[in-house]
């Protein structure tokens, strides 16, 4: 079996051969080979013996991939092949790089522009708040505010397009 798995921006190819009926597998990642025995400890714990050394990993499915916990670190591991096909499907004609979306679930506290305004790259457009911290969302490029899709006190989440900024041609 082959996988291409992405953590942050790094994608690595894995070659996996599983011994039928047994809980062990041989992994090759780049130049490195790993021999892994494993068992699951319900519900989320995997006990693995990697090249003879015991490792506990905790795994949970998230929306975009799997969250993996290992010795205090948590990694979001994504299937690079699924990602690229999903991204291709999702990118519709009306989605542009000028869309402004919040980085976390939050509430809109201030809207600093109006539709039709000319804005500069980096200019504050909307202020959202979460957990007592205010964050200003800025214009991704120079352009004109085409549409504002939110209002004050609205609850918003990553992926919601709050403001659409259209790049102005022939400046």
């Amino acid at each position: 079996m082959k996988y291409r798995l992405k953590i942050s921006e790094e994608t690595a190819a894995l070659d996996v051969s599983v011994s039928a009926g047994k809980q062990n597998a041989e992994f090759t990642i780049g130049e490195k080979a790993y021999s892994v025995r494993y068992r699951t400890i319900p519900d989320h714990c995997l006990h693995m013996i990697v090249d003879g050394k015991g490792v506990n990993a905790f795994v949970a499915d998230g929306g975009e991939g799997k969250h993996v916990f290992l010795k205090g670190k948590s990694f979001l591991v994504r299937d690079a092949d699924q990602l690229s096909s999903r991204r291709a499907k999702r990118r519709g004609p009306d989605q542009t790089p000028g869309d402004v979306t919040p980085p976390m679930p939050s509430v809109v506290v201030r809207i600093m522009v109006e539709e039709g305004d000319l804005v500069k790259k980096g200019q504050g457009l909307i202020v959202v708040t979460a957990m007592k911290m205010e964050t200003t969302l800025v214009a991704p490029s120079d352009g004109r505010v085409k549409k504002i899709n939110t209002s004050i006190d609205a609850k918003v989440a990553p992926g919601n397009i709050l403001v659409e900024v259209e790049e102005e041609e022939n400046e």
């Binding site: 992994f27 990642i29 892994v36 795994v59």
Partner: peptide, 11 residues
């Protein structure tokens, strides 16, 4: 630990 995380994903 990234390799191990990828292995855990597959397991």
């Amino acid at each position: 630990g990234a390799d191990l995380a990828r292995i855990a994903y597959v397991v």
